[in-house]
């Protein structure tokens, strides 16, 4: 029943996230012919303007188009936002809401409460990340441009594995800050700032400063446009991200076990 409670707590966040992920995938997959048409029209109206290299590639390379808009940018950003939001919750939040007295009167260890909540949240963010693995190849059939299922699954897995650190951040924030809304505000602000500072360096060919190279979780999550096999995964980046996520979770667990409620 602890799982059921965790589901009741997070289901709206998860379902809204799932709906938005589906909508975003549908927009860029089903809207692909329209977007390409618009680019083409623009080029015809302004023939003197040099087309950006990524537009040139996205026009002819459909998997690249999907990667550019979804896995490397908007879908990833949306997923990260929901990974943080779904991570929010737990005993500190219950304390702020006044329900900690009830849950802590039940014959449960704090460890179990935290682990179940985090496990369900983890499953939800994984499902959110894997929805595109089904949605993109399925929707692509309708526009007559097949999208390789392996590619979709690979990118989705990469996004989830590389991005679990953001879920860990959500868990950590709501453990460290005993407030109902402040962790959410800080979490969303961190995500917005992260992508704001990162955005000038996301285009191909732009020289990145060292701090971007070190902290670019986004690049790890996106991988390369064509993931032909699992050997092309940025394994070091994934490991660092997963270890950081585990560290944040462990820290949250220890804080929860030691805190007075």
């Amino acid at each position: 029943m602890l799982w059921y409670k965790a589901w009741l707590e997070t289901r709206f966040r998860f379902l809204i996230g799932a709906a938005l992920v589906c909508a975003l995938c549908a927009f860029f997959v089903l809207g692909n012919p329209f977007i390409l048409g618009t680019w083409s029209e623009h080029q015809q109206l302004h023939p003197a303007e040099a087309e950006l290299p990524w537009i040139l590639r996205a026009t002819t390379d459909y998997p690249y188009f999907i990667w550019h808009f979804l896995f490397a940018r908007l879908l990833q950003q949306l997923w990260v936002l929901f990974a943080v939001i779904i991570g929010l919750g737990g005993l500190s939040r219950e304390s702020a809401q006044g329900t900690a007295g009830f849950i802590l009167s039940l014959p449960l260890s704090r460890r179990r409460i935290v682990c179940v909540r985090a496990a369900l949240g983890g499953i939800e963010v994984a499902v959110l990340g894997l929805i595109p693995a089904i949605a993109i190849p399925a929707l692509s059939i309708f526009i007559g441009k097949p999208y390789p299922a392996f590619q979709a699954v690979s990118h989705a897995l990469l996004m989830v594995l590389g991005g679990l650190v953001f879920f860990g951040l959500g868990v950590m924030l709501s453990t460290a800050i005993q407030s109902e809304h402040t962790p959410a505000l800080i979490g969303v602000a961190i995500v917005l700032l992260f992508y704001f500072f990162l955005s000038p360096y996301t285009d191909d060919g732009v020289i990145e400063p060292l701090w971007i190279k070190l902290l670019d979780v986004s690049r790890v999550m996106a991988g390369t446009p064509a993931l032909s096999s699992f050997s092309t995964y940025p394994l070091r980046g994934i490991c660092i991200s997963l270890l950081t996520a585990c560290g944040l979770f462990y820290l949250s667990l220890r804080m929860t076990e030691k805190r007075d409620y």
Binding site: Q97, G98, T99, G101, F102, S105, L108
Partner: peptide, 15 residues
């Protein structure tokens, strides 16, 4: 202890 004892808190906040 919590398996064998029941508690009602002062504010009675539930979900």
């Amino acid at each position: 202890i919590r398996q064998r004892a029941a508690f009602v808190s002062e504010d009675k906040r539930l979900y």
